[in-house]
Simulated scan of single mutants.
Amino acid sequence: MLTATLAFAGVAALINLTPGLDTLLVVRTSVTHGRTGGRAAAAGIITGCLAWGLATAVGLTALLTASRLAYDALRIAGAGYLAWLGLSALWRCRRQKAHDGQKHPKGAAMATSDEEPAGSFASGRGSAFRAGLGANLLNPKAGIFYMSLIPQFIPHGAPVFGTTLLLTAIDVIELALWYRVVSSAASVLSERATRPSSRRRMEQLSGVTFLGFAAHLLLADRT
């Protein structure tokens, strides 16, 4: 049991360190809302992972491979949600640019401002948490990941339910540690990027990237 647990921890760590949608969401929220916002988004993602792990333990994730309809419904919903995040980021960026143009007309002195920028989640930590949770739960590939990876590390004769929850706990602990590092590093970048134009570029980049993830999820097959 110990050997299987250590092996899973190593494999999960390699996967968790690979940049992806969830990491982008933590980075983007940390830059636009600071460390607290980034960690709220990370908490949402981790809650989604816990839900997928529990679903795997009781066998619910098998529906994603057994039912094409269930998989496609979740995939389309996830793509729509990511598209909404991307378009919302681009729209806020455009509105903020227009606002800054009115506030600082061309030729006027541009003062450095430390005010809170127009962020990705207007309602703060609660919205950041919901964004992380939604992005994770509406991604069917997250369910497929848990369903396909965890059973490979359950020793023969070990209780499936308890062992699945144990491996899920290991995975989310690794994620929590990783996202803590990511949010801290990104928040330092946020403190240095005080110019509104720098924050707008971050919003533009994240918005376009979210749209790319949405397109990939929409066009992806189960395979």
Rank of each mutant, 00 (worst) to 15 (best):
P117T: 04
G53Q: 00
L167H: 09
A122N: 06
A118T: 13
H33C: 05
D100N: 11
H99R: 14
G53F: 07
A62C: 01
F145H: 09
E203F: 05
A122G: 01
A158R: 01
S113D: 15
L166H: 00
R199V: 06
G207I: 00
G20A: 09
T168E: 04
A158N: 09
V172A: 03
I154L: 10
A186G: 04
A142T: 14
T56I: 04
P151M: 05
L167V: 00
V26E: 03
T29P: 07
L2Y: 10
G134T: 03
T18G: 09
A215Q: 07
G37W: 02
E174H: 06
G126Q: 10
R35H: 13
A4P: 03
L166R: 03
I76Q: 02
L21G: 02
R125C: 10
L17V: 15
K103E: 13
V31N: 01
L69Y: 03
P155T: 08
Q204W: 09
I46D: 07
S127F: 02
G134D: 09
N136V: 10
V26Q: 10
V188H: 13
R75K: 13
V172G: 00
A215E: 03
A176W: 14
A66D: 15
T36E: 12
L6H: 09
T65H: 08
D221Y: 03
R195L: 12
R200D: 05
R180N: 15
F153D: 00
T32Q: 14
S190I: 07
G20E: 09
F145D: 08
G86V: 01
F145V: 08
P105M: 05
H33G: 14
G53W: 05
L60Q: 04
F213P: 03
Q96Y: 07
P105Y: 08
A57D: 02
C93W: 04
L87W: 04
H216K: 14
A108Q: 14
L219Y: 02
L177S: 11
L205K: 00
M110A: 15
A128I: 06
L69Q: 09
G80L: 03
L166D: 04
W52F: 15
Y71V: 01
W178L: 15
D72V: 11
C93E: 07
F129S: 02
L167T: 01
G212L: 10
G119N: 00
Q204M: 12
